[in-house]
Design a protein around this nucleic acid. Structure first.
Lengths: 217, 217
DNA sequence: ATAACAATCCAACGATTGTTGGAATGATTA
DNA sequence: TAATCATTCCAACAATCGTTGGATTGTTAT
């Protein structure tokens, strides 16, 4: 018989709970989602998550304590990155479950995406086929560094801030499918709104790179 | 432009964090793992997790608040069950990440499973082939109700409490592979210890039904 | 009815967490 | 060397959480 079974079990579950704890704070989730886009400095993370650097640092400390992120010094800055793709995958799994189970989250998400989004196929394979053939333009509106870190196949990069000035680069005859960091990032929605106002055919993609990668084996 | 982007984002991440919060308490994790075995009364859950019924009730309330479990009254008792396989899958994903990332958890798990476990193939497909041909006996040592709810293919049921009296039912010439609720459940380890003492060839399976099902598409 | 039982609700305690301000570190630039 | 910048560490507060005891609800058995 295993000795002190109860003690051992408590220890084991406590360890797993350390990971769960990381995913129990909204700010930390936002930081994880940002880190899914690529490595970033504390400053960038704090700015993008609209929190103070001190607070960001404190939360990142938690992430590092759970061995989910690692750091590297580059000059003055300290870069944070996820230690493994597995972490990004768990983020996707958690938020997917949340979307499926919490009605509040569903309605909240529907409120945002009021635009009809039917001019583009919802399944990934046919969308990729169309992108390959050039029948649609897949547009990455995240900052350039994030695009450089990873992006969807066939995607072009125009950061949301530059979009208004660079409209001429885009075709008016084919649909433009914009995506950003994921379902909780609103940049793609803003991009689509702008593009439509300017006479483009446009729709947004819910998912970001992390969501696409999770299903790839 | 989306109005009040920050407010909306905070709301969205807060919703996801509700799910994360559920996975941030050791006791709740243990309850989830138990519920992965099938539906149970509060009494059973409390007993198996070694906590008071009041406390179990309080934690289950949290689970229900996050729409991860649902209840049904059967006579005097109230049965809890996971609302969806997706919840069990997330539990598996969380504890798998924990095992991969937290060295403490790895060493803790190795301490328990000191027995050499090499007399049986580690990959599932060949194990199942052998089980089909009857070259090994797959033994489910969980309580009967859990076996009835779901079990691995070709598995036989002998609850750990009855094992000593029912040794005659098992063959001595073929290896007996015992499994229980998952990596944090110690029943299979106890079973293997007993079987070996009695002269059987035996090994334990780390994973339980939840872990097997997650990879099935 | 009344008693016994399963489970929840409510209130309250101490422990833990999120957040902020101020001081300290460690690398770069002048 | 001093000054500056990016980041962390430390201390402290309010807010939240886990846990327990006591009263309450709803169900079955007598």
């Amino acid at each position: 018989m295993v000795k002190d079974a109860r003690k051992i079990k408590n220890l084991l579950y406590e360890q797993v709970a350390r990971i769960g704890k990381v995913f129990s704070s909204p700010k930390r989730l936002e930081l994880i989602e940002l880190l899914c886009q690529g490595e970033m400095t504390v400053e960038t993370l704090a700015r993008e998550a609209s929190i103070s650097m001190k607070l960001a640092s404190a939360h990142l400390r938690e992430l590092r304590g759970a061995h989910l992120v690692e750091t590297e010094r580059r000059g003055k800055n300290i870069l944070y990155r996820l230690v493994d793709k597995e972490v990004a995958d768990l983020w996707v799994h958690v938020h997917t479950l949340a979307e499926n189970r919490l009605i509040e989250l569903q309605t909240e998400l529907q409120k945002i995406a009021t635009q009809p989004n039917d001019l583009v196929p919802s399944d990934r394979e046919t969308l990729m086929k169309m992108a390959r053939r050039g029948e649609v333009v897949v547009l990455d509106v995240r900052p350039t560094e994030e695009y450089l870190a990873t992006h969807l196949p066939f995607a072009r990069s125009i950061p949301i801030d530059e979009l208004r000035q660079r409209l001429a680069e885009l075709p008016k005859d084919r649909p433009i499918v914009a995506y950003c960091r994921g379902p909780y990032c609103l940049m793609a929605i803003d991009a689509v709104e702008l593009l439509r106002k300017e006479g483009f055919k446009s729709a947004h993609l819910r998912d970001g790179v992390a969501e696409w990668k999770v299903t790839e084996v």
